[in-house]
Simulated assay, not measured.
Amino acid sequence: MKKLLSIVVPCYNEEEATPIFYKTIHEMEAELASVDLEFVFVDDGSRDNTLKVLKGLHQQDERVHYVSFSRNFGKEAGIYAGLEKAKGDYVVIMDVDLQDPPSMLPKMLSEIENGEYECVSTRRVDRKGEPPIRSWFARKFYKIMNKISSADIVDGARDYQMMTRKVVNAILSMGEYNRFSKGIFGWVGFKRKWLEFENVERVAGETKWSFWKLFIYAIDGIVAFSTAPLTLASVFGSIMCLVAFLFIIVIIVRTLIFGDPTSGWPSMVCIILLVSGIQLLCLGIQGQYMAKTYLETKKRPIYLVQEEE
């Protein structure tokens, strides 16, 4: 009996790309003949006709299933919902815009079926087509994350990966509200193989990730998998206390020698502004962790379903 491969596809305003994605996978089914296929599309509260397209695909192919959210909950929620819905022995997560090359699926499946690996992940080796400043920040983010966290996050890592049921269950067991999938994938471990590919442009539509959204996403990742910023805040505080103590000594000595305690006020104003800035930075760092803890304690659902099939 063949094993089942579930293809999890988060979608947000992707009415143009969705039919192209389905057609592309359908045309290469012969290369995936060793398994049966299941499509799990997650409509993340799209405002276009994405849901209508998914319903049409379901009517023409009973292997196509979908989950439609009551509103936009984000890609992280979409991935989690797709993994929950998937019934496959193997599960692969893919972007509907075909920036995750379907041509890699046979190789990924072969590596999984050999039994040597529990997970086959992918990474981009270049960022052609991206703004240079965005690529620079992305590379720095991965370097920082690997230095300050216990999660194994490779530069250029994608959500595009194929996993055994054991890995999927491990990921689902992490039911945290504030999710950062790249970190979760690395944190759960298991024997993993990396496949590389060159950047591919979207087949249709426009990216939903602005620089600001990526920046917030990066902060979420750092807060979710590292307490290093809190340590940094403590270090800043200790350094500034030491600097303040040294300045007190300098002022006392200067007053005793020159008898002019009021001169130098411009530099003092700059010092006050610097210290105040560092204090606000440290408070902001602590606030981020408190906010995440606050959201976790509410125990809100990761997503709400409007309809599914």
Results as ranks from 00 to 15, higher is better:
E130Y: 14
L57H: 00
M145K: 10
H65K: 11
P102D: 06
A138W: 12
G205C: 04
P19G: 09
Y90M: 12
S68A: 14
L280S: 13
D43Q: 00
M290K: 15
K143E: 06
K299M: 12
E111M: 13
C11I: 00
E198M: 02
G183D: 01
E27R: 15
G186Y: 02
V96M: 06
E14F: 01
M174H: 12
Y22C: 10
T207Y: 01
K166I: 04
P102T: 09
N169T: 10
A291W: 10
I222L: 07
N178W: 12
F225L: 02
Y217M: 07
Y117K: 09
V64R: 00
A233P: 02
M1T: 06
A33M: 03
R158Y: 05
G221S: 02
A228C: 06
T24R: 14
A218S: 10
S276D: 14
I252R: 14
N146D: 03
N49P: 04
G205I: 05
K182A: 02
I257C: 02
Y177V: 12
I7R: 08
W212L: 12
E16Y: 01
V200S: 06
Q288M: 15
K128S: 09
S46G: 13
Q60Y: 06
T262H: 04
R127V: 13
Q306S: 15
K107N: 06
L4Q: 07
K52M: 05
G205A: 04
D97L: 08
N199M: 09
W194L: 08
L172H: 08
F137Q: 10
M174F: 09
G56I: 00
L230I: 03
F190S: 15
I25V: 10
N146M: 05
E76S: 13
A86N: 07
L304S: 14
R202G: 14
A157I: 10
I144A: 15
Y177D: 11
I271C: 12
D89K: 03
A233C: 05
Y217T: 00
K55R: 12
S46M: 00
G259V: 00
I93W: 01
K55W: 00
V203Q: 11
W212Q: 15
S263L: 03
E111H: 13
E176S: 11
I153D: 04
R192M: 04
V253N: 11
S46C: 05
P102Q: 03
G115Q: 06
L230D: 03
V275W: 15
K140A: 11
Q286L: 14
R47N: 09
K140I: 13
L273I: 07
Y217R: 13
F41L: 04
A170G: 07
L4A: 07
L232Q: 11
D95M: 00
V91S: 09
K128W: 09
I251L: 12
S173H: 11
K107T: 15
F21S: 05
E62F: 10
